[in-house]
Design a protein around this nucleic acid. Structure first.
Length: 529
RNA sequence: GCGGGUAUAGCUUAGUGGUAAAGCUCCAGCCUUCCAAGCUGACUAUGAGGGUUCGAUUCCCUCUACCCGCUCCA
């Protein structure tokens, strides 16, 4: 593992700020104070995300003979997620220590025996302060007496003091205290403090379907899917039968998934609502590991093509014990975000776990029959599962750049540039008449705009000076700017040959070249795909 | 979920228990023949809710969101 610190909070702040001010990504429901862990994509962010998804779809579905698409429902039958293990195994009961706030897994606490002392509250006579709240302490060593328990209890009650200058020992415990011998998992083994009741942390959003009259009907429960994968497994047989495809083949899906994360963090990186781009690739059991390696390479190439170079991606071969129990091989693709090295995608060899679970729970046969070898088996699955929002965030982070264009010694002139690959850029080309108060230039520019608009996302701008307009496009990552000038009109003495040509200005180099208007469309199409 | 921090205009920041300031951006106009020129003008803000107060953006409480550290992450 690389231990060098790649974090850069200031850079991240600038990126977040640019995302908002330019309309890439905004906080959800901002005017109402925001919704925790939810984000909205603005006009440019939406274009960017569409481009990422469309390119992913093109490369992984349309340009392959062995991958088919689907689009499953978000509301998910509870039995599907029971079979997958999400309903039962996805939640660990957790307890919090009332004294230290440490969080413990309830099923990992060993029973402690000793004498439990119970208190009902505490007060501070001089200030008149008091609190009523039951609390208990377990003394686990025979050589400790109640003074130890009282001391711990006072520490607990002192947490409720507003005046932090009052020492815990100045408090008086109130109410009847009682004690008994016990053997219990209700106490923190480290300090004897009472723990909270075990609480379930299921990360799935639960909802109820149908009329409100059935509110208590357990059969009305449905979930927002916590991953897109299960909708694929559940439809695997239907897709197979409907499409006449043969193993090995994949089913791809782009769609929303939802997890009630305890702690959303890092801008859009960990959100409660997020979009996945997943392929479940079904194959013969003998081929699983081979395809895992193949998909890893394919996925790395993909990131490179959209502007996230492999040099910034760390491939983690997830070691034994850290993989999901059903996976015998998992690669995590991690990107050097400004807030740390974090996972973009997992390529997991899931064996036949998912399909077998659905066979077991649905009692429907999901075997594959190979007509050539006469074999009947449950296919194994390789799953490249990418986070779409994370990918977009990585693209944004990677694209962000600042340049100082000023001469040495002069005051800095900072150019902000989003160096998106043209393929991914929200706007492909900006059409700019050199001046707006010359109607011929404006008319010609609009002509060029109308020529290109049916084929790509273009932007027309006639306000302000041309240099300013170039910089504006730099900030939102438009790779090409077309300027319509007087030479375009063919009115310049001695430059009649330039009639119906324009200058194309390149975002990254700021260099310009002259192209005939008739050549523009093919020239651009070649560069934006 | 715990601890710490933050919240003033689209962005970045001032400031104050008594009319909230600036730069940039944006918009309109003038000007402008290729990289944020200049001039004029306009718009826009104290996260939400309570409390104290004659008066709160400022002090207090609660909530919400964001950031950092834990924790968690099938």
């Amino acid at each position: 593992m690389a231990n060098k610190d790649t974090t850069d909070p200031e850079r991240m702040e600038k990126i977040v700020s640019l995302c908002k001010s330019k309309g890439f990504i905004m906080q959800s429901a901002e005017i109402y104070g925001g919704l925790n862990g939810c984000w909205d994509y603005g006009p440019l962010g939406t274009e960017l995300k569409r481009n990422v998804k469309e390119y992913w779809w093109r490369k992984n579905v349309q340009e392959r003979d062995d991958v088919l698409g689907m689009d499953g429902s978000i509301l998910t039958h509870k039995d599907v997620l029971t079979a997958s293990g999400h309903v039962g195994g996805f939640s660990d009961p957790m307890c919090d220590c009332l004294l230290s706030n440490a969080r413990l897994r309830a099923d990992q606490i060993d029973p402690q025996s000793g004498t439990a002392y119970h208190y009902t509250g505490a007060s501070h006579e001089e200030s008149g302060w008091s609190v009523e709240r039951p609390f208990s302490v377990l003394l686990m060593n025979a050589n400790e007496d109640e003074n130890k328990a009282r001391k711990t209890a006072k520490q607990f009650y002192s947490k409720f003091l507003k005046d932090k200058t009052i020492a815990p020992k100045k408090l008086s415990l109130v109410g009847e205290s009682s004690s008994e011998e016990t053997d219990s998992t209700c106490y923190n083994p480290d300090n004897g403090s009472l723990l909270t009741e075990p609480r379930e942390f299921n990360l799935m959003f639960e909802t109820r379907m149908g009329a409100s009259a059935v509110e208590d009907d357990p059969n009305a429960v449905a979930y927002l899917r916590p991953e897109t994968a299960q909708t694929i497994f559940v439809q695997y047989k239907n897709v197979l039968d409907a499409s006449r495809i043969k193993l090995p083949f994949g089913i791809a899906q782009i769609g929303k998934a939802f997890r009630n994360e305890i702690n959303p963090r890092n801008f859009t990186f960990r959100s409660r609502e997020f979009e996945q781009m997943e392929i479940e690739y079904f194959c013969h059991p003998d081929d699983g590991l081979k395809f895992t390696e193949e998909w890893l390479q394919k996925r790395l190439a993909f990131y490179d093509e959209i502007g996230v170079p492999s040099s910034k991606i760390h491939v983690l071969d997830v070691p034994d014990g850290e993989r999901a129990h059903y996976s015998s091989k998992t690669y995590d693709l991690e990107y050097e975000f400004p807030f740390g090295i974090q996972e973009l995608e997992g390529v997991a060899y899931r064996g036949d776990y998912d399909l077998s679970q659905h066979v077991k729970h649905s009692k429907k046969p999901l075997e594959y029959f190979d007509d050539v070898t006469k074999e009947r088996f449950i296919p194994h699955v390789v799953e490249p599962s990418a986070g779409c929002d994370r990918t977009c965030l990585a693209v944004l982070c990677e694209a962000y750049a600042e340049e100082n264009l000023a001469e040495e010694g002069a005051k800095p002139d900072i150019r902000k540039v989003m160096r998106f690959k043209p393929l991914i850029a929200p706007i492909k080309v900006a059409i700019l008449p050199l001046l707006k108060n010359k109607p011929e230039l404006v008319a010609k520019a609009k002509e060029v705009k109308n020529l290109l608009q049916p084929f790509m996302n273009v932007f027309y701008d006639e306000t302000a000076a041309i240099g300013r307009r170039y910089r504006r496009q730099d900030e939102i990552g438009t790779p090409f700017c077309i300027a319509i000038d007087f030479e375009t009109l063919g009115e310049e003495e001695g430059k009649e040959a330039f009639k119906d040509t324009v200058t194309v200005r390149h975002r990254d180099s700021m260099e310009q070249e002259r192209l005939a208007i008739v050549d523009l469309l093919p020239w651009l199409l070649q560069r934006i795909r």
